[in-house]
Simulated scan of single mutants.
Amino acid sequence: MKVEEKGHTVIIKDTQGDVKIFHDKITAEYNNYKEKNIILDMSQDNGISLDVLLSFLPLSNKHRKAKKSFVMVASDIEYSDVPDEMVVVPTLLEAHDIIEMEEIERDLGF
């Protein structure tokens, strides 16, 4: 797991290729990141299923309820199957764009 902070955002990248271990580490260390917007970069993990992404839903809901962004980067996924309450994008650049838009929405009171 590689962690990189950029301003008000933390990018957490899965480096082991085991999403279950990645999920467990993020959940265990969540308090270290709860004040920042979170990007989970799983773009290097091939064959991620929707079920794997859904395992992050409780953490995503908790983080978004605290008025912070939670964006997952995953390739090779059918994005139309992802529930509306989750944000999953294909690239890191799009993840940053989503966070920027959500920050503006929060600043405007939406």
Rank of each mutant, 00 (worst) to 15 (best):
K6Q: 14
G7T: 01
H8T: 06
V10D: 11
I12N: 09
I12S: 06
T15N: 07
Q16K: 14
G17P: 08
G17E: 07
V19M: 07
K20V: 14
K20Y: 06
F22K: 05
F22A: 09
T27S: 14
E29D: 14
E29L: 10
Y30M: 06
Y33C: 06
Y33I: 08
Y33T: 08
K34G: 01
K34Q: 13
E35S: 15
K36W: 03
N37L: 11
I38E: 05
I38K: 09
I39M: 08
L40N: 03
D45K: 11
G47Y: 02
I48Q: 03
L50D: 00
D51P: 00
L53M: 14
L54G: 00
L57M: 14
L57Y: 10
P58H: 04
S60K: 04
K62D: 10
K67F: 02
K68T: 02
K68A: 03
K68D: 03
S69G: 12
F70D: 08
V71T: 10
V71G: 07
A74G: 03
D76T: 04
I77G: 07
I77D: 05
S80N: 10
P83N: 11
P83F: 05
E85S: 10
M86K: 07
M86F: 01
V87N: 11
V88H: 01
P90L: 10
P90E: 14
L92Q: 09
L92T: 07
E94I: 07
H96Q: 13
H96W: 07
D97P: 01
I99R: 10
M101F: 15
E102G: 02
E103C: 05
E103H: 09
L108G: 04
L108C: 07
G109F: 01
